[in-house]
Design a protein around this nucleic acid. Structure first.
Lengths: 83, 83
DNA sequence: GTAAAAATCCCAATATATTGGGATTTTAGC
DNA sequence: GCTAAAATCCCAATATATTGGGATTTTTAC
């Protein structure tokens, strides 16, 4: 069953996963370590990095916080490229 | 039982709820309408606006999208005020 | 201060995210 | 290509977010 790709601001879950994995690689640390530092199970982290899953905000926040990323809330920006 | 206030970027769940409610008020629309437009149950919306609950990313995204807000992912900004 | 609308509460049922353990696959270094 | 490490998969158990219905409280408009 194919999950509908959910858009979060200018990103979907897949993009968020990609950004997390990319950042983790930049830091040079493995999933197990992020899992331990963030308190999020490695299975959960795997799912999120792969763009599967649909984490609770707290789960995502714990991971982002651990790797030095953060979410910010803005008024929607029009995307002129796609208009 | 007191839930630990979860920080999402520069915001916690309470702040996010406040921002959602504020935006909804600016739009001059009631919870039931946002609920219908977003497909998120009104009970869920109530909880989020009140800073209770810990929504899934998709739930938050559906609400934000409906009211013209969005989340963006950034490298963490140092908060000089609190250093 | 009354009436109507909006917001909140309560609760039980359901859906689904998270976790932990172990097996399997993929990747990286030599 | 071997080997070790990392990543992914599978599955059952558990935790918790979401939903819907109805009751109650709060707010708003007159």
């Amino acid at each position: 069953m194919q999950r509908k790709s959910q858009h979060i601001g200018n990103m979907d879950l897949e993009e968020i996963g990609k950004r997390i994995k990319e950042r983790r690689k930049e830091l040079g640390v493995d999933q197990r370590t992020i899992s331990e530092l963030s308190g999020v199970a490695v299975n959960t982290l795997v799912a999120i990095e792969r763009g599967e899953g649909n984490p609770r905000l707290s789960t995502l926040a714990e991971i982002l916080d651990t790797i030095g990323l953060q979410l910010d809330l803005h008024p929607k920006k029009l995307n002129y490229e796609t208009m």
